[in-house]
Amino acid sequence: MGEEEVVRLDRTKLLAARYRAAQARPYLASALYSLSVVETRRVPTMGVDRRWRCYVSPDFVARTPVPELSGVWVHEVSHLLRDHHGRSDRLPAAEQRDHLRVNVAQDCEINDDILADGLDLPEGTMSPKRFDMPDGLMFEAYLRMLPEEVRTLDCGSGAHGAARPWEESGDARGGVGDVEAEALRRSTAEAMRSHVRSRGTLPEGWKRWAEEILQPTVDWRRVLAGAVREALAWAGGAVDYTYSRPSRRSGALRGVVLPSLRRPLPRVAVVVDTSGSMGEDDLAAALAEISGVLKEVGVGKERVSVLACDADVHAARRVTSADQVELLGGGGTDMRVGIEAALRAPQRPQVVIVLTDGETPWPSEPASARVVAALIGETPPEPPSWIETVRVTR
């Protein structure tokens, strides 16, 4: 019985496919030519690592037509340009561990643009339509919409972030460093902008990506979390004496009990605008973020009250999580009512967090508590300067 013939990597075909991709989409040329090729039989198709090394199966190259190979080149470099591995590092730990499911979501983010752009991809390619999902979303959104059991081929750590056994370590065979990768992303985004201005159009996903690279927006979740933490630290900074836990120095003085210092946890009131102009999804996202921060810093359920408010206060009750908030109301908007109701409570809060679209009157003078306003929507009006503001945008 003869030995099975070993297929050698057809580099001419592979590089011809990359040339075709660069000619068809010149704004991707610099990024495409920055990928270094590593031949391996340990990957079924093609994959990339964080250092922009592209691992290629000789068998896959042999059986795949050049137009489809061109599409795969664009697919792999898209993982790296969109910093999928960096974004994967910021996912919750449980989602990070399921790296093949993350890979499916990332493929959906990329492939809808590739297919809409008229490029070819191999049969069986993952796309949003395959799962009855809408086009144009980020992979983080697709990840929460996908069926639990779905899996795909492995695109490597350059996609989902998890190092693979077939990847080379460190600086082996060169590769692209973080600083150079950021420069490639920016130069590609600038090339896309020039392309649009001069003669062409871009798929929506690439257009959004280029705008974000050239005019980055601040992650509202991080800013909101920071503002809430800072307000809680300020409110908890006040110390008081207590005899419930005597000072350790009492032992040095016979018959004398010295009080110890304590830093009490602040009480928090969350005033939620439930008027008809509020976006429910953005509101839920902001509530979830606040709930997570309060839990993280140890402000327990007995120290948090939530007030649903439009032109009047409909409900004020303590909750343990954001999904317990019952949104009532739906009329006009006056957040002064909610803030005043929060400050009149028997257990007065030190921090008041207001979630609103900003279309409301505000108190005329600073409140006796720290007030943080999360402004939901694209162009919310500015509240008074003494209120700390965070803009919550899509």
Rank of each mutant, 00 (worst) to 15 (best):
G2P: 15
G2C: 12
R11N: 03
K13V: 01
R25Y: 01
S36H: 09
R41W: 02
V48E: 02
W52E: 12
Y55E: 02
Y55H: 05
P67T: 01
W73A: 08
E76V: 06
L81S: 05
R82H: 11
D83L: 15
S88Y: 06
D98Q: 13
I110V: 14
D120S: 11
L121A: 02
P122R: 08
L143F: 10
M145L: 15
E148P: 13
G170I: 05
A172W: 07
R173Q: 10
G175D: 05
D178K: 11
R186E: 15
S187V: 09
T188Q: 10
W209S: 05
E212T: 07
E212V: 00
E230F: 10
G236H: 04
G237V: 03
T242K: 14
R245P: 02
A252S: 13
V257C: 09
L265I: 01
L265F: 11
P266A: 01
V272R: 14
G279K: 10
D282P: 15
A284D: 07
A286V: 08
L287K: 09
E289P: 07
V293S: 06
L294H: 03
K295V: 00
V304I: 13
D312R: 09
T320W: 13
S321C: 10
L328D: 06
I339Q: 09
A341I: 03
V352A: 08
L355A: 12
E359K: 15
P361W: 13
E365H: 10
R370Q: 12
V372S: 12
A374P: 15
P380C: 14
E382M: 12
P383F: 13
W386M: 03
I387E: 05
E388D: 14
R391W: 08
V392Q: 09
